[in-house]
């Protein structure tokens, strides 16, 4: 028999681990429920007499027919294009509004506040329909002397009343209100000392914002912006209501023609899921870019592990190297 001392120091502890019967029961129940749902998804509807049926409960044959058909694929492209364009409008205008809001000029900050108040306070669908019908209150748009001569004008029926413009304006201007708040939060999160350091080096205001504040604010700005992009992808379905042939519009068409609702819904859902997945991967890389110079274990999140192992085959100890100073150093 060993002495007490050596047991204390060298022997790893051998103890009976705590049992968790509750976990096993809950897991089993969940497994059974999951099996039942899966069974309905992958099975055909049985006939009245109990014979195996020929009709998929989820209409997989129709889903397969629809999903890569030309109208659906084009609709998916249009949805992506609409999302990106509306987001670009939202991000560009949102940044301007955020800078206005943080400006010491009360006229500018007041304007920005009012903008956010209005566009955040009315439903997107109302805004889209508003832009769709704008020509009824402003039949022409012109450039000239205020309250005076108009030198150049155009017919907004061609510009605004098009459903494309209405959708982009409605989605983009609404998004700008939300993005401006995200930008503002990001810029306020940057330490005041950073601005003072830049000022003490003689950097003017705009240069300080561009070189010091925004790059650091980006770390705070990117995650909610990723959320907004994905949210926009789904909100863009509203554009179908003013006749833009995107995914939801295609569903409506198919449902009206075939009286089948679930299969086209599944088809467009799969498209939405696919695009969301691609966007999430993109977000991971953008976040990694703006994480430059920030060390800390908190950076290693589950998604980070999964994605880095998928997209960056193991190089020396994964995404981060641990140096002798036990400081986390990003890979070069």
């Amino acid at each position: 028999m060993q002495s007490d001392q050596s047991t204390e120091v060298h022997e790893p502890i051998k103890a009976v681990p705590v049992r968790h019967p509750g976990r096993w029961v809950a897991g089993l129940v969940l497994l059974v429920l999951l099996a039942m749902v899966t069974n309905t998804i992958v099975s055909k509807i049985p006939k009245q007499n109990g014979q195996p049926g020929t009709q998929w409960r989820y209409g997989w044959d129709l889903v397969r027919q629809l999903i890569f058909s030309a109208p659906y694929a084009n609709a998916a492209l249009l949805t992506m294009w609409l999302t990106l364009t509306a987001m670009l409008v939202g991000i560009g205008l949102g940044l301007v509004i955020a800078l206005f809001r943080l400006s010491p000029n009360p006229l500018l900050s007041g304007t920005a506040w009012t903008y956010t108040w209005f566009f955040r306070g009315t439903p997107v669908i109302v805004q889209i329909f508003f832009w769709y019908n704008i020509a009824s209150i402003y039949p022409t748009l012109g450039v000239g002397v205020p309250f005076g001569t108009v030198y150049w004008h155009l017919n907004p029926i061609t510009l605004i009343s098009g459903f494309v413009a209405a959708a982009i304006l409605g989605l983009g201007l609404n998004e700008a209100a939300y993005m401006s708040e995200i930008f503002r939060a990001g810029m306020l999160s940057v330490d005041r000392g950073q601005i003072e350091a830049a000022q003490s080096l003689g950097m003017p205001h705009t240069l300080t914002q561009r070189l010091v504040v925004l790059p650091q604010a980006m770390r705070v700005i990117i995650p909610p912006t990723g959320n907004e992009v994905i949210s926009m992808l789904k909100t863009s379905a509203l554009a179908g209501l003013v006749g833009l042939p995107e995914l939801f519009y295609q569903y409506q068409g198919t449902a009206a023609n075939t009286f089948q609702n679930i299969p086209p819904l599944i088809a467009i859902s799969l498209w939405y899921l696919l695009i969301t997945t691609v966007l999430s991967i993109g977000q991971y890389f953008v976040e990694r870019h703006y994480r430059r110079g920030v060390a800390g274990v908190s950076q290693r999140r589950f998604g980070g592990y999964v994605l880095s192992s998928v997209f960056k085959p193991r190089r020396r100890g994964g995404m981060w190297d641990v140096t002798s100073d036990s400081v986390l150093v990003p890979h070069r």
Binding site: G193, Q194, A197, A198, S200, L201, M203, Q216
Partner: peptide, 30 residues
């Protein structure tokens, strides 16, 4: 201000730039 250097208690280095970039950023831009 460009002619007056200042060193802060909390350093206030720009965390998104390397040491060299921290030193070069102001002269390069100003």
């Amino acid at each position: 201000r460009a002619d007056i250097g200042m060193v802060f208690q909390r350093f206030n280095l720009f965390p998104h730039l390397t040491a060299l970039e921290n030193v070069t950023v102001a002269p390069l831009r100003v």
